[in-house]
Design a protein around this nucleic acid. Structure first.
Lengths: 380, 380
DNA sequence: TTGTACGCGTTATCAT
DNA sequence: ATGATAACGCGTACAA
């Protein structure tokens, strides 16, 4: 009772209580009064409530076998003292630790931000905490994942972006569920049962985009592709580009295939800009560009403008991803929109199903949608 | 010796070794051979090396009082077995736990992404791990911080963005160092010794921007401001706007002050777009807009275009922040560039100085730079 | 220089 | 329904 009263009283009242209180309650009164956050543990809560620690633990973790009244008392006390269980201790002890990680390849790409939020929300709903980690383009995401697994006792991982040319051996080291989201180029030989992947069909969508340009009468179509060497979504989309060209009887010309500049951050406006700029300087004639990412497309648009040309009248530009910005840029961007939120949501649901043993590894392909806006026009 | 050999051998060799090996070494040989990642602990390493756990601990943590040879052996073994110390256990034990948090208000705003990376890099250099947490606009960052502090035993916090109208009482609950970065409106009455802040002078820079527009001959200048009610950087920048107007003898008209739409995500292209669109529908005559954030500015540019007007000929637009996109958008964006990387770098350095007791709380104001591009022209 | 043993805060097991 | 108590993996006094 002292506690409750003192808790709402002003300083003078608390001082008064001080005199009458036992050692322990004094201690806590002062804590509360000072609003100090000297760390308060489960033991303290137990002591205050006059119960054992295990009872408090039961109350916290919604176990059965606990008297509702006791539970209420404990929960109230916890709230009153602002007690928060120490996560390190929890993870140390719990077999069912509750952390998943999102490994994002390429923080600069705004395409991922909306997905991250969706995943975080889903995790929060299920009381999992998420470890968000940015992976630089040089880094090996599997190695990083491995470290994280041991360090944080992860239960599952979502890999966002990047490419996955890892060997089966290497992937099987990760003996927790993981979902490859919007990641490219999984060797066909890989055992599909050891991993999950949710993504669009990059090759097919790349084909769709290119076919659309061809249908609009374009013949000289450049592509702003991905990383030079590695197999990535960029490569896959480029494969679709080549297939569409071949199918239409148009030569695939190597000089029209531009890989991202290595010295500039990947998937950035700057990369698209500089790449396009140096290409235009050469004077090679084109009437359309397929950029394998919206950010590259926007950079390219600017480079085209700076070269004294117009989008789309002189050069049409089509992007890939469907980021918000595309609607508001000028000209607004014709693009292949990935159902980002949907993919992200489904991926996290799948991950938790995998973690909790409700499902086996899955591979799902999401359909993209060609969004027609201003950056493409028909070739006269 | 068995271990080393088996480690490089193929399965058959390992099987052979099995027979001869002791119980323990067999255990580890199989671990390694399987590439399984059953959790290997400090005890295991100690056992393998034939030393005590404390010796291993000393090797890991670069303590003195350890035989260099022993250390080498241990470090090699650790690498060989891919041992990674369990962070939860470490944090539980260590007084000098090494986690800081970045609390970002508004994930959607690309202005923060470059800063985050800089801070992460700086933290990594000092072997701190960072907890990145997104704060929604409705959430109270101090409450979240408080939870995190207890949950993860944070050593310091960087608050990125948002406003800080919290009471001294509330802030002092956070008894770890924290730096307010690009956060707005700290009540002047607040005791400057209990917190640090690194930011631009939002009021002054807002003044500069507006003054520039006035100097270009503009009189009817609207402002795309921040959140409706709360004191935020938006408010401060708007205050600068008002001051510049008054100083130039121009009436401050309430109908030209547009706060962000509540029903749309704050600091998003969409918010700038819709806000501008509904304003233009009213037909109020203006010749310039000051958007308190680049993303709003870009959205506004598009709304202006969609209304059949031109930027800058009919309406000039100036932004604030200096995000990359501004260079590549069309028209490119005249904006007040904050030295984002510099602020982020200095902030993290400060935070670690605070944590390690080398400094007292600091308040530093960084200068912004007006970057002149295409979205503003002089009023004829 | 090295090893033993204790404790960090929590959950799980086992009594009661 | 509840309370002791033993782990979890690590760092660190302290002893050797």
């Amino acid at each position: 009772m002292h506690l409750t009263t003192a808790n709402h009283g002003e300083t003078r009242k608390a001082r008064f209580t001080y005199v009458m209180a036992t050692r322990w309650s004094v201690f806590f009164i002062r804590k509360k009064m000072n609003n100090s956050n000297e760390i308060i543990t489960i033991k303290d809560i137990a002591r205050i409530c006059g119960v054992g620690v295990s009872t408090v633990s039961r109350a916290i973790n919604d176990h059965q076998d606990i008297n509702p009244e006791t539970k209420t008392l404990i929960l109230d006390t916890i709230k009153k003292y602002g007690y928060v269980p120490n996560n390190s201790a929890r993870n140390l002890k719990r077999v069912d630790a509750t952390t998943i990680a999102i490994l994002v390849k390429g923080i600069a790409n705004p395409f991922f931000t909306s997905m991250i939020r969706v995943i975080e929300d889903e995790a929060q709903k299920r009381k999992y905490s998420v470890e968000l980690r940015h992976v630089e383009y040089g880094e090996d995401e599997v190695d990083i994942a491995l470290e994280l697994i041991k360090e944080k006792r992860l239960r599952g991982i979502i890999f966002l972006g990047g490419y996955f040319s890892h060997s089966e051996d290497k992937l099987s080291i990760l003996n927790i569920p993981f979902v490859l989201v919007s990641a490219g180029c999984i060797p066909e030989t890989l055992n599909k049962e050891i991993y999950s992947s949710y993504t669009v069909d990059d090759e097919e969508e790349g084909y769709k985009v290119t076919k659309y340009l061809i249908d609009q009468g374009h013949r000289d179509i450049a592509i702003l592709s991905g990383e030079r060497d590695s197999m990535s979504v960029g490569q896959l989309r480029a494969n679709g580009y080549k297939r569409a060209l071949e199918e239409a009887g148009i030569d695939v010309r190597e000089e029209l295939i531009l890989t991202m500049k290595d010295e500039i951050e990947y998937y950035s406006f700057a990369n698209g800009y500089e790449n396009m700029r140096s290409f235009l300087k050469k004077g090679t004639k084109i009437t359309a560009v397929f950029a394998i990412s919206d950010v590259l497309a926007i950079g390219a648009c600017r480079a085209i403008k700076d070269a004294g040309l117009r989008v789309p009248e002189d050069i049409s530009v089509v992007g890939f991803d469907g980021i918000d910005l595309g609607r508001y840029s000028n000209p607004s961007l014709t693009t292949l929109k990935q159902p980002a939120e949907e993919i992200a949501d489904a991926s996290s649901v799948l991950l938790f199903d995998l973690i909790e043993g409700r499902k086996q590894n899955q591979h799902r392909v999401f359909g993209g949608e060609l969004v027609l806006r201003e950056s493409v026009c028909a070739r006269k």
